[in-house]
Design a protein around this nucleic acid. Structure first.
Lengths: 336, 336
DNA sequence: ATGAAAGCGCTAACAT
DNA sequence: ATGTTAGCGCTTTCAT
């Protein structure tokens, strides 16, 4: 798109009969301007409908007041909660946010990330879709810090903000191990970092209890609630039907609950991720919950601190804690 | 934040031993460059870790490849679905999106909208928090088109994309009128545009059926599920307990369902807005559903068409249709 | 207190 | 096929 004939500072200066610099002083509220001149300038500004070109200003001054947020998939509620928090923190500090979504495609991530850098974002919050981020090395070297969010990145020094996936899963499974002999596990593909961590946490819980995870009760590659419902049915109809299920994400939890409710089966369920209206569900369940907004806000403040501070300081790893929360079973109000 | 010493085109030109313009030609893939020189340039680019400054380029060329999206409240799932759709459309056309949230505050909206215009967005999608948008008149006059989304704006010529609030409510209430004598209405504050429209639609349905809405069964100002639950309890305990409820938004629906389930009351429920997992709820309900992504995509394409097309053409009003969908009652899978 | 000149990094318009 | 010059709209620097 082409720019149109907007008035410039020069136009305002001509209209007010003052120099360019005087207009600049008025716009930027610099001291030492004759009030009479300032009024004339303001009148001209209003009359012409002038406002300054922030891009030109930042080109000349070298300042930069935008950050980039590149989600893996903006359309899920997790990314959205994060985006809202990032936007809130940025807005509070007078910064703007360029948002984009890689759609979980490493090539798209790369293109968009470099695009954002070309637009001179002061820093980048990235939910990795790619596994190698070496392509960002020149950017980081030239002073555009990156913060990895939710999943670790690789190939560049960068602060990282992660959920305590392992600890959350460990606590959840440990709790189930207290009352159950046979525990089924429903996870998405273990190629996914968070799933590997959650499985590792579950294994830690088994090990700590001196027990072994039954491989026949472990189902991976569950993408949709339908997958989870089918897997649940299969486990229940199998030779060693579980009396408890640990679900690796909210889609798995929803699908498992659906099948269990259909059968009216007495199986305890604990799922990673809370979800909207989980407290409204008819049957009780536990969820590994966490504060999505806090996660986004932490990523944003980490980035802004890095921008303001020492670029060379060693990267930090922040783990956001999880809590085990009772849901469903018709509670009065949402909590946690 | 200050810019750091990134290499410029000049640096690349010096390093490759060519002129500035040759570097520009290579970067922009213009024809008529000696392959040998081009290789030298590319080598220098890699060695220096150069990339072009897109802001400087667009300042000079007058092009502009970003649009602004100003939500009223980025943190709700409605805004988020819209944001994702806007981002997808923009990305597909090679544009970037600056996102911000007014937090339903007219003053914040004004500040952020003007901020975005100063950053020379090519256009603005706005979910109005303010009622008067005259402050944007100079921007629109100078060629920055605005699209109002979800709520109408005022004071400037601008395309508008709305839900068919009135038609959706009318259809929902007409359906309830077919089988019910006493219908309760649970709405948020009627200061809110969408609530006024939905109430008007309900009234139209009553009028079309030759019946009158019972004012004692109309509750407004319902903000939270708790408000809705309390209002439901009050109506059921009143002299004319309704046998059906029409809820003006998903918060009202959730609260009403909570109270009805607690009492195990046989009351039909239809609510405006679908919500996550509505299909999982134990008791049947109907919802006035719509395609959030379509709403966002329509706003984005409307804006882009306006940017590409005739700025002076009369503003268009787009109504996005709604559908009445059965939910709850333990269906197999999500539909609609 | 005010202004003139230079220049941020790039592209456009014109040479050669 | 390559280079030179000017200038986008602003801030900076240095005069006055």
């Amino acid at each position: 798109m082409r720019g149109s004939g907007r008035p410039t500072m020069n136009d305002v200066a001509a209209a007010a009969g003052v120099s360019l610099k005087t207009v600049s002083r008025v716009i930027n509220a610099e001291p030492n301007v004759d009030p009479a001149l300032a009024d004339r300038v303001r009148e001209a500004i209003d009359r012409l409908g002038y406002h300054r070109n922030a891009l030109a200003a930042s080109l000349r001054s070298g300042t930069n007041d935008t950050i980039g947020f590149l989600a893996a998939d903006l359309s899920n509620s997790f990314s959205m909660g994060i985006a809202a928090a990032v936007s809130a923190v940025a807005s509070q500090r007078g910064l703007h946010v360029l948002m984009a979504s890689s759609e979980e495609d490493p090539a798209v991530e790369r293109r968009l990330a470099l695009d954002l850098c070309q637009r001179r974002v002061g820093g980048l919050i990235l939910v990795p879709a790619a596994t190698d981020h070496g392509y960002l090395a020149p950017e980081v070297a030239h002073g555009t810090p990156v913060v990895f969010l939710d999943r670790p990145g690789d190939g560049i020094p960068a602060d990282t903000v992660l959920l305590d996936n392992r600890g959350g899963a460990r606590a959840a499974v440990a709790e189930l191990l207290g009352g159950h002999e046979r525990i089924g596990l429903l996870l998405d593909a273990t190629e996914i970092y968070t799933m590997r961590e959650r499985l590792a946490g579950a294994e830690e819980a088994f090990a700590a209890a001196g027990r072994a995870l039954d491989p026949s009760l472990l189902v991976t590659g569950i993408h949709t609630p339908q997958d989870a419902a089918a897997a649940t049915a299969r486990l229940l109809d199998g030779p060693r039907p579980p009396t408890a299920l640990f679900c690796g994400n909210n889609r798995a939890t929803v699908g498992a609950l659906e099948e269990l409710t259909r059968r009216d089966a007495d199986v305890a369920v604990t799922g990673f991720d809370d979800f909207e209206l989980s407290w409204m569900l008819p049957r009780p369940l536990r969820v590994v919950a966490y504060d999505v907004a806090a996660l986004g806000a932490l990523a944003a403040t980490t980035l802004l601190d890095r921008i303001a501070g020492d670029a060379a300081a060693p990267p930090a790893l922040h783990l956001v804690p999880t809590t085990l929360v009772d849901r469903g079973g018709r509670q009065r109000t949402p909590t946690g």
